[in-house]
Amino acid sequence: MNSIVRSTIVAQIGATIAIAASSVDVAPAHALAINGASSGISNPAQTIDFNDLTVGDRTVITNRYPGVTFSNLFASTYSNGSNITGRNLTNFSSGLGSGARNPFSIRFSTPRSGAAFAMVTVTGTATFTALLNGVAVETFNANTGFFGSNNFYGFTGSSGFDEIQVSIASSDNGGVIDTLQIGAAATPVPFGFTPLPGLAVSGLLSGIHRLRKQFAKERAEA
């Protein structure tokens, strides 16, 4: 094997490594924020309006719904005459004006592509964070209040999150949520791998073919 062929092989191997390296995806999952919208996610796989709750106000609500677990949330009957009606959930563990629990969270048994809910608070700022296995995927702050119909918050277009955590900063740190919309199960790309682009594969195969022809020529001339 002469030096030209050897150099060609080395170059081809280097190109293969470069293509493989370019296929590694180290970017974390992301999600788009739903911030003060008039509606939540499109075509939710499940919607929970909490109107089936028959327990008394301030009853702890945890795992009453399949696939969803709540933390620091309690049964409520607050209504703002808009998107918050009937039964709902609040982070008040006792009467309004006291006992607010922050942060509260909604956890899903499997990663979801999106989730949203209507929420009202005393005028203030709330922080919404989507997490996957305890690691933040996306977060945003929103100005929240009692009135108006543009009060849906959440995340959509995600490659996967299994929790939404909410922290409220207002005069009493309390909030009420209703109409929880849960998106389809997420199908994330396996971490660390993205399929090779078609052009890269074609180039690699073409290079291998040229090497085979060069080997055949060298052997014929030997």
Rank of each mutant, 00 (worst) to 15 (best):
N72K: 13
N88I: 10
I34D: 00
I84C: 02
T144D: 03
S42P: 07
P66L: 05
S171A: 11
G145H: 15
H30Q: 14
A200M: 14
R101Y: 11
G86N: 13
F155T: 08
H30S: 15
L196Q: 06
F140C: 03
A116I: 01
R107Q: 14
A27D: 10
F146N: 08
S202T: 09
S93C: 02
A116R: 00
A126T: 15
G67L: 02
N80A: 08
Y78G: 01
V68S: 08
I9A: 03
F146K: 05
V201F: 09
T110Q: 12
I13T: 10
S105R: 15
L204T: 10
R212F: 05
G192D: 04
V26L: 08
E138M: 07
R107W: 02
V24G: 00
A136D: 09
Q214K: 10
N102L: 04
G183F: 00
G148E: 09
N102T: 07
D57C: 04
G81F: 09
G154L: 03
N83G: 08
P195Q: 06
F161H: 02
V26C: 02
A31T: 06
F117V: 07
G114V: 00
E138R: 11
Q181G: 01
M119L: 15
G154V: 04
S79A: 13
G145N: 15
V24M: 04
A75M: 08
